[in-house]
């Protein structure tokens, strides 16, 4: 059996793990992979800094949670929450990978036949120079980012009254 690429609910960590705080989304996604609070059936993806190349992984999902470094012009470690619509409406996005993520969300708006619910949870980076560890301010926020991601996933789970399960229920092709 060949696995399907995507689930109905996806978490996508975005960022570059060799550029310090830039990789905070990927670090959070890795933590979620072993977090027992994550509802069953949710697929967690290390998206790196891919943009449109992520379309195959997320275009069949109903709900997508992006975790990313976001420059909101605030103090390092500040967390923000945006929806896909917020990102579409911005002429200049806030995500450090905004061209990639915004392009991706834009392409999905046109290409996906699913009504997609997209949320971006972000953290203000302090340092995006070469390096594999997070700055103290961002490191201190990492747990909160993971908690916020879990809360978002649970909210989706509880509001699944529209008949959309979190996990793909049908047979995979």
């Amino acid at each position: 059996m060949i696995d399907s690429l995507s689930s109905d609910t996806m978490v996508v960590g975005v960022g570059n793990t060799i550029l310090s705080d830039d990789g905070v989304g990927v670090h959070a996604a890795r933590l979620l992979q072993s977090d027992p609070r994550v509802p069953a059936g949710v697929e967690i993806l290390d998206g790196g800094t891919l943009g449109l190349e992520l379309v195959p992984y997320v275009s069949d999902a109903y709900r997508i949670l992006f975790l990313d470094a976001v420059n909101s012009g605030s103090a390092p470690g500040t967390r923000v929450r945006m929806t896909g619509k917020d990102l579409l409406g911005l002429s200049a996005g806030l995500s450090v990978h905004q061209l990639g993520v915004a392009n991706l969300i834009a392409a999905l708006a046109f290409a996906s036949t699913k009504p997609q619910d997209i949320v971006v949870l972000g953290v203000q980076p302090a340092n995006t120079d070469w390096g594999i560890s997070l700055s103290p301010a961002v490191e201190a926020t990492l747990t909160q980012l993971v908690d916020a991601a879990v809360a978002q996933l649970r909210q989706w789970q509880e509001s699944a009254h529209d008949g959309l399960p979190l996990a793909k229920s049908s047979c995979t092709p």
Binding site: D3, L5, D46, V55, P56, A107
Partner: peptide
């Protein structure tokens, strides 16, 4: 443009099989 998105969705499964984890 739209069909190309669908095309890559199927085609990249070669990496999913041979690469173990994907997209990295």
């Amino acid at each position: 443009y739209l069909e190309a998105l669908t095309f890559q969705r199927e085609f990249i499964r070669i990496h999913a099989v041979l690469g173990g984890k994907n997209p990295h």
